[in-house]
Design a protein around this nucleic acid. Structure first.
Length: 452
RNA sequence: UCCUCGGUAGCUCAGUCGGUAGAGCAGGUGGCUGUUAACCACCUUGUCGGCGGUUCGAAUCCGUCCCGGGGAGCCA
């Protein structure tokens, strides 16, 4: 029976027999024995093993051990007399499971660039930083479910293959068997694609179950090549019935604070690695976000501030034009220096499903901008009035027949409802301080690149 | 897709005015030591991203394509 290093280090059963299995990070030989550091992925820390020359396979196996080899070790845990670790394992048995030829094994004991590691998608989780990202990502995913389940939200598995394009959400990948000669022969009887958003389907379930969320992979065929875009990414989309924009903002804010707090309290060692080596001051930044109120301004106020700003922008600022990255960054990074919620954008630049405000010019939209990442959450109150929605769809040139089911939600028992989308990888980026989104997903897919 | 910077040993990089390539680390061998980015000595390693051009001669200059970083657009 093996014990995970995480538990060994937490419980420190000194004097007790312990067995574990993992991969060799480094070996150092001394006079009559070797120090071997083992990592088993359960935590950032390695466990130091002492392997004495009296072990039967000392000369044949243990002295040959190199970085990357896999081993099983049994022994007795003891207090360490030297600095660097509280406890260490005196091995009574060490079995080599798999060797790793040091001439060809690409990972070294020293630091590698993330660009290099990206070429080794199958080996990079064995590094400190990528292992830590994986654990924090897993924990955040768990915390997402915990947050919503604690609040009686129902998870809906919305479809990956979809026949409805969530307008304004980007280009779709087309799904087909490759055998169809014409549209009538299509596998689904109509053209289909990979989902760009589960929102419209989530609305269906919100108007039946009240509060729901969907959390799954999302696909965008955009040719965008940046440090915060992926072709395949995970998106969290809560949708709440009987909920207006104020309620939407409140739940999004509460959720973000909850998630940051959860990662900090449950992954302290990994978070300290990020704070120390990836983004200095990360923990202070996150604590600040948890403690401070999020700033909130309307789009009109944002335009006002930008027009009065003493800063030269490349792109023009004018009511009716969308805010550019430089504008969003100026507001969140320089003016407010904290997460900023911008609401009530012009209807002309937002999708048909967002609820038209009383001024008839703006919609009940909200974007949450965070320093360094930009937009992390985008949401809105949905248009629940049949006539208004129909007019907006016609204006947008949408085929009404294709969305009859969506219109039915407004025809039968319509209610005000709201929701938002959170880019999960952008959240992981924000929490870990990783500069490039390709480092926070196991196997990144981007134009021209899809390893493994 | 656009702008911009880059691609030299397994990794991180240097390479001047165009004259055929170097360091540190890693790896190998030997030594030493309760070590911990271990240490000391010696040794190995190159389609200079690809193709084409200019030139007596190209890592170096020009063209083009591929790949990567940063920024922009699109968005989450």
């Amino acid at each position: 029976m093996k014990t995970r290093i995480k538990n060994i280090l937490r419980e420190k059963p000194v004097g007790q027999p312990v067995a574990l299995a993992g991969w060799v990070r480094t070996r150092r030989d001394t006079g009559s024995f070797s120090f071997i550091e083992i990592n088993d992925g359960s935590c950032l820390a390695n466990l130091q093993i002492l392997a004495d020359e009296k072990l039967s396979n000392y000369a044949s196996d243990i002295k040959q051990l190199s970085t990357g080899s896999s081993v099983m070790v049994a022994g007795v845990l003891q207090k360490s007399p030297a600095k660097g670790q509280d406890v260490e394992l005196q091995a009574s048995q060490l079995t080599v499971i798999g060797t790793a030829d040091p001439e060809t094994y690409p990972l070294q004991k020293k630091r590698h660039s993330f660009e290099f590691l990206r070429e080794l998608a199958h080996l990079r989780p064995r590094t400190n930083a990528l292992g830590a990202v994986s654990r924090v990502r897993s924990r955040l995913s768990y915390a997402v479910h915990q947050f919503f389940q604690e609040r009686d939200f129902v998870q809906v598995h919305t479809p990956i293959i979809t026949t409805s394009d969530c307008e304004g959400a980007g280009e779709m990948f087309i799904v087909s068997t490759g055998q169809e000669k014409n549209k009538a022969e299509h596998f689904f009887g109509r053209s289909a694609g990979l989902t760009v958003s589960g929102q419209l389907q989530a609305e269906v379930y919100a108007l039946a179950l009240g509060d729901v969320y969907t959390f799954g992979p999302t696909f965008r065929a955009e040719n965008s090549n940046t440090s915060r875009h992926l072709s395949e990414f995970w998106m969290l989309e809560p949708e709440m019935a009987f909920c207006d924009l104020q309620g939407n903002m409140a739940i999004a804010t509460e959720m973000l604070k909850y998630l940051l707090n959860d990662a900090m309290s449950n992954c302290p060692e990994d978070m300290q690695l990020f704070d120390k080596f990836i983004e200095k001051g990360l923990l202070d930044k996150l604590r600040g976000v948890v403690e401070k109120e999020f700033a909130h301004i309307t789009y009109s106020e944002a335009v006002d501030r930008l027009e009065k700003a003493k800063k030269d922008f490349v792109y023009p600022v004018k009511w009716g034009l969308d805010l550019q990255s430089e504008h969003e960054r100026y507001l969140s990074e320089e003016v407010f220096q904290c997460p900023l919620i911008v609401t009530d954008y012009p209807a002309s630049i937002k999708p048909f499903y967002m609820r038209v405000n009383d001024d008839k010019k703006t919609v009940a939209a909200m974007d949450i901008l965070v320093p360094g990442i930009g937009e992390i959450v985008g949401g809105s109150q949905r248009e629940e009035r049949y006539d208004v929605l129909e007019a907006r769809m016609i204006e947008a040139g949408i085929e009404l027949a294709d969305y009859a089911w969506y219109m039915d939600l407004r025809r039968y028992g319509s209610v005000p409802h709201s929701g938002f989308g959170l880019g999960f990888e952008r959240l992981v980026q924000f929490v870990t301080g990783m500069a490039n989104i390709r480092e926070v997903i196991a196997f990144p897919r981007a134009p021209g690149s899809a390893p493994c």
